[in-house]
Simulated assay, not measured.
Amino acid sequence: MRFLLVDRILELEPGHMAVAEKSLPATEELFLDHFPGFPVVPGVLLIEMMGQTAAKALNAQRLSRGQAMLGEVRSARFRHWVKPDEVIRLSATIERNQDDFAIAKCQAEVAGRKVGSAELLFVFMPPEQLAPEYRDAVLEDYLLQQGGHHES
């Protein structure tokens, strides 16, 4: 499994909010063990999906502070099981956005029903510490479709 846990961005306001979608196919190997006979998306992956959604809102600002990285899960709640092949709608609202950290309130829904939520704290990795070939294809593609600029 790759840890690219946002399939597409639906809405984005740089530095303020993002809405995205993700679906994990039933063929993902993780469902063999989580759980046999009752496959569900692990809660930790729901947190990561919400975190990646929030990071896209932060990274879309293109600030010199660098790449948003999850620094702390302040709270997380899971309300309902998420089954394979279900489309998960992820939303993130940036509550605080400072030079050295940011805080996001996030939510995951399936078919209009809240399945999870989290408050996440982000720190920033300076650009020179990223691999030179690093590229967030989902964010870049969305920005290009919206007429935004593209940085390689």
Score class of each variant (00 low, 15 high):
R113L: 11
A108H: 04
G116I: 04
V110W: 08
H80R: 15
S75T: 07
D99L: 12
E72W: 06
S91M: 08
A108N: 04
P127T: 06
A104I: 00
E128W: 02
L120Y: 04
P84K: 14
A108S: 09
R89S: 10
V115A: 11
M69F: 13
K83L: 15
V115L: 03
L90F: 01
A118L: 02
E109S: 10
L121A: 11
I88F: 09
Q129G: 12
V87E: 11
L121F: 05
F101H: 13
I94W: 00
E119T: 07
I94S: 01
E86F: 07
E72R: 10
A76L: 00
E72P: 00
A76I: 03
V123E: 10
E86C: 11
L70C: 04
Q129V: 12
A118C: 02
M125N: 09
E128F: 05
C106F: 01
G71N: 06
A92P: 05
G71Y: 00
D85P: 15
I88V: 13
V115C: 08
K114D: 08
K83H: 15
S117C: 03
P126M: 00
Q98G: 08
G116V: 04
V87Q: 10
P84M: 13
A76S: 09
V87M: 11
R89K: 12
D99S: 11
V87Y: 10
K83F: 15
R89I: 07
Q107L: 12
A76C: 02
T93G: 09
K114F: 05
V115W: 03
S91I: 00
L90N: 00
M69L: 15
R79Q: 11
V115Q: 07
S117D: 14
K105T: 05
M69N: 12
G116L: 03
E109F: 06
Q129S: 11
V87C: 10
F122N: 01
L121N: 07
S75G: 03
L120K: 00
